[in-house]
């Protein structure tokens, strides 16, 4: 197992006391495609980022167990974490516009990531960057390597981010809403690319999204989070048979192209879903 997480809790200190955003999440990730779905504020991003201990300074994290490939993440020193972050576990973020360095060319950013983790000469790094751009299916990689982020479209920017994450050959890829800033047509391309790369390189994938149908389409199993807790785990293929009223509610409030409804059903939140168990 790449990741073992037991009873993860993430809290934030507020003037009114500690507010818990993640309340006892347990999960494991192996060489598989795991989806985490939930609304904004459900704690899905915090859960994923805890694996890399990439949380805001005001957050307090506790867990009975939080291991990345046997390494205890919570007690690890920064140096040990640096060997995990980026190198063994890559994080793809939502919006390439904000996550790429605006004053560095795409090629230079990828080369920097490659050199930071693998060493080697500048020339080797540049060559590797172009090779990586080709792997994420950019048609003219040598030209794109010389472009600045503002000269790239959203889809191309996201491919550059993926290329950068692939540079150190990670074992786990965490994709936090990798396509929500993109068009539907580009979205499908990017997800197919991630799926393909994960299969080819034998990586583990954690796909975080608010889009339930999308996630179930690309993952093996899906965790549904509500108010900091996993309320249901379903096999992606069995999503129609999900039992929890929250999951059912999420599916039913989607407008459908094929089956029109005169009125959309609205999620009725039951306080019991977020009550301590």
């Amino acid at each position: 197992m790449l990741v073992r997480m037991d009873n993860l809790r993430v809290g934030f200190r507020t003037p009114q006391g500690v507010s818990e955003a993640v309340r006892g999440v347990s999960l494991t990730v192996g060489q598989e495609k795991l989806g985490i779905v939930g609304e904004s504020g459900s704690g899905k991003s915090l859960t994923a980022r805890s694996i890399l201990r990439l949380l805001p300074g005001s957050a307090t994290v506790t867990a009975d167990k939080l291991e990345f490939d046997g390494i205890d993440v919570l007690s690890a020193r920064e140096g040990a974490l640096r060997r995990i972050r980026g190198k063994r576990a890559g994080l793809i973020m939502q919006d390439p516009k904000y996550s790429l360095n605006p004053v560095m060319t795409a090629g230079a950013q990828i080369a920097e990531a490659w050199r930071a983790h693998k060493g080697g000469s500048r020339r080797q790094a540049t060559k590797a960057a172009i090779d990586l751009l080709a792997q994420v299916r950019i048609r003219d990689p040598a030209r794109v390597a010389g472009l600045y982020p503002h000269e790239l479209s959203g889809g191309m920017g996201q491919r550059v981010m993926i290329a950068m994450m692939l540079a150190p050959d990670p074992e786990l890829l965490i994709a936090d809403e990798p396509t929500s800033a993109l068009d539907a047509t580009v979205q499908a391309d990017i997800l197919r690319l991630i799926e393909d790369l994960v299969a080819k390189r034998g990586m583990g994938l954690m796909l975080i999204s608010h889009d339930l149908p999308l996630v179930s389409h690309f993952c093996d199993r899906v965790l549904v989070m509500y108010a900091g807790r996993v309320v249901e785990e379903v096999k992606a293929a069995d999503l129609h048979r999900a039992k929890h009223p929250y999951t059912r509610g999420l599916l039913e409030c989607l407008p459908s192209l094929v089956k029109p409804k005169p009125q959309l059903s609205v999620l009725k939140r039951d306080p019991a879903w977020s009550a301590p168990q």
């Binding site: 608010h210 999420l250 409030c253 989607l254 009125q263 609205v266």
Partner: peptide, 13 residues
């Protein structure tokens, strides 16, 4: 969010 989207769409109709 999709749950809120449903509420806003119902409101608009």
């Amino acid at each position: 969010d999709v749950s809120v989207q449903a509420e806003v769409l119902n409101l608009l109709s």
